[in-house]
Design a protein around this nucleic acid. Sequence first.
DNA 1: GCCGTCATGAAAAGAAATTTTCAGCGGATG
DNA 2: CATCCGCTGAAAATTTCTTTTCATGACGGC
Lengths: 290, 290
Amino acid sequence: MTTASKTVSDVIHSHLGVLTRAEKQLAESLLDNYPVSGLGSITTIAENAGVSTPTVVRMVQKLGFKGYPDFQAHLHQEVEATISNPIAKHDRWAQNAPGTHILNRFADAIMGNLRQTLTDLDTATFDNVAALLSDRKRGLYFAGGRITGALAEYFFTHMQVIRPATTLLSSNSSSWPQYVLNMNAGDVLIIFDIRRYEQEMVSLATAARKRGAEIVVFTDQWGSPAAKLARHAFRVRIEAPSAWDSSVVTLFIVEALIEAVQNSTWDETKERMKTLEGLFEQTKLFRKPG
Amino acid sequence: MTTASKTVSDVIHSHLGVLTRAEKQLAESLLDNYPVSGLGSITTIAENAGVSTPTVVRMVQKLGFKGYPDFQAHLHQEVEATISNPIAKHDRWAQNAPGTHILNRFADAIMGNLRQTLTDLDTATFDNVAALLSDRKRGLYFAGGRITGALAEYFFTHMQVIRPATTLLSSNSSSWPQYVLNMNAGDVLIIFDIRRYEQEMVSLATAARKRGAEIVVFTDQWGSPAAKLARHAFRVRIEAPSAWDSSVVTLFIVEALIEAVQNSTWDETKERMKTLEGLFEQTKLFRKPG
DNA sequence: GCCGTCATGAAAAGAAATTTTCAGCGGATG
DNA sequence: CATCCGCTGAAAATTTCTTTTCATGACGGC
């Protein structure tokens, strides 16, 4: 058997390219909640995927199986392997990987971080920050450090699409005073400051506050000194089985905020996104002849 | 549903007293390697237990199921519950928040993405990429798109500390050819390309491959066209209850890779980090008097 | 705009599963 | 020892699932 070593999931992936529309649709449905979704009869999975039963037969044959029963037998074997594997019993993450694989250890850590962070987090804080960022009258300024700069940029990039008056502070802290100069009372400064807290962040926060800006800080559980100056602070768990801290949960909060802000003014955002699409198209036209 | 609380296993146990010899034999067979042993057809499990098919029908009806299909449906549900990560299933994340709060919905989605991604991910791919990135003889180049640029930058920032010969491609794609010009055979190009795949990525990948570079792609489950040119591809689930895609799981893989690479050459990395600390100190000294 | 090719699902045909029927068998009882 | 009762599985009947066939419609090339 050729499929002895490869999982059904692998086989599907390696064939994704040669699948037709309906077959892709079916493949998606199977991979979603794999491998349990393939447990039922051919009729059931065809219905779940919204395709006809012949499509199922054609696809599994295209994948190299003799027929649907053959396909399902392989799936059953995989389910069996997954369930009866003693390591898999508790936390089954990456299959075929020993429980000590870095991916599994990381997954465990991230899960713990997420859970702890959400337990500690006051949803009122979240909602208040979302409201603050949704307020079009307030200018937004994003600042990050050496490592967290990427998070600030990610946040900024999204907010820039959603609303006007957003600014990303250059990574070069010597230029920060110029940004502060432009801040008005009521503007919001979003600061990322984690572990090895950077001295410049406190200076930035102090200066911004003097100008009447509201400050939102993303920091770790121990708290950046800048958090003391902040109106709102997110204390995120950042522990990882690594010499580095994990930014995964921080990014999680950021994405949730992006959605919350966007959602609060969806009509306006939609218009902006449409316009942006148009601008992208134009840019392409500019570029094509070049 | 009455069986929502009781498992099939419970039901069998509670009926053990009223079962006949052949039925007990069947029950034993089912409980042995439960619940996988009940995955097949009635014929299969009858054969495995060494009883006739009518015995199976009679027993499941005695247990309170309408018939074999009904019995099997319950078993499938249990298999699903066993396989699905128990933590991901738990009802509420942030306490005191309604289950429909954006934070909770996001947490559910992210956990699903993580689980699915790790299920689909081949750990060999991960290990191979880690080895590739650990090889000091290879230069590393990081490229991202409009949104994924921040991920590329995050990855780059860490790798830059861990090892020499790392380059972040400017976000301005018109300058990319100059980077390709400097690539040598065996160098590694790490590309982030998700959804709205950017045409330039394919051009970049093609050009880099002509220079003999190895290509690693981070993409979504549908696959960037650049993935076809890649030696290794990570297909990450990016679905979120949002108009935007989620980068959380992608960042997760990136962080795990960072740790894997660092771990493989910890001694050297330690030296580099010490030196870096020294350099930071010096910079501060420069600045203080100013 | 016509033609060929291919994807797709409805429906029929075929195969397999599930359920029912029924006869044999073995142990219990008088 | 005869009889009864209920367990058991072979085999038939029934239902359901799986596969094949074929008509339709979409798409691209000429």
